[in-house]
Amino acid sequence: DEIHIHFNGVTIEFRGLTEEAKKALEEAIKRGASEEELKELARRLIK
Results as ranks from 00 to 15, higher is better:
T18N: 11
L38C: 03
R44I: 14
T18E: 06
T11L: 13
R44M: 13
E40M: 02
A42Q: 03
E37V: 03
E27D: 14
A24V: 15
A24T: 14
K47G: 15
E37Q: 05
I46P: 01
L25V: 07
I12N: 03
K22E: 03
T11D: 11
F14N: 01
E13H: 14
H4A: 07
I12S: 04
I3T: 06
A21H: 14
A33M: 10
K47D: 15
E40D: 07
H6T: 12
I29Y: 15
H6K: 08
E19V: 11
I12M: 06
E19P: 13
I46E: 08
G16Q: 08
T11F: 11
R31H: 09
G32V: 01
L25H: 00
G16C: 10
H6Y: 05
H4S: 10
L25S: 00
E40L: 03
A21D: 13
G16P: 04
R44S: 12
D1L: 14
E13I: 15
I5P: 03
I3K: 03
S34M: 02
K23T: 12
A21C: 03
E27H: 09
H4P: 02
R15L: 13
A33L: 07
A42R: 02
K30I: 09
H4V: 12
K23G: 07
G9S: 04
R43V: 13
L41Q: 00
K47Y: 15
T18P: 11
K23I: 12
H4T: 08
T11A: 07
E19S: 12
K30Y: 10
H6V: 12
I3D: 05
G16Y: 07
I3C: 05
R15E: 13
E36P: 05
K30H: 10
R44Y: 12
E2I: 15
H6M: 11
E26P: 00
K47C: 06
K47W: 15
I46K: 06
A33S: 07
A33C: 06
A42V: 15
A28L: 06
A28I: 03
E2W: 14
V10T: 12
L41R: 00
L17T: 01
I3Q: 07
L38R: 00
A21N: 09
G32D: 02
E19M: 12
L41Y: 03
L41F: 03
K39I: 15
K47I: 15
D1A: 12
R43Q: 12
A28R: 01
L17C: 02
V10P: 04
K23H: 11
D1I: 14
S34V: 02
E37P: 00
A42C: 02
E35S: 08
E35W: 15
I29E: 02
I3M: 10
L45H: 01
L38Q: 00
H6F: 09
I29F: 13
R15S: 14
A28P: 00
E37F: 05
H4F: 10
E37S: 03
R43C: 03
E20S: 07
A24Q: 14
V10H: 10
I5V: 10
L17H: 02
E2N: 10
E20R: 09
H4M: 10
A24D: 05
G9F: 03
V10F: 07
E20L: 07
A42P: 00
E36H: 08
G32I: 01
T11Y: 10
R31A: 14
S34T: 13
E40R: 04
E27Y: 08
E2G: 10
A33N: 01
I5Q: 03
I12G: 05
R43H: 14
A21E: 08
A42D: 00
E40C: 02
K22Q: 08
I5Y: 06
L25Q: 00
R43E: 15
T18F: 05
S34R: 04
L41H: 01
E2H: 14
R43N: 12
I46S: 07
R31S: 13
E35G: 11
L25I: 10
A42S: 03
K30A: 12
E40H: 02
F7T: 04
K23D: 06
R31E: 08
E36Y: 06
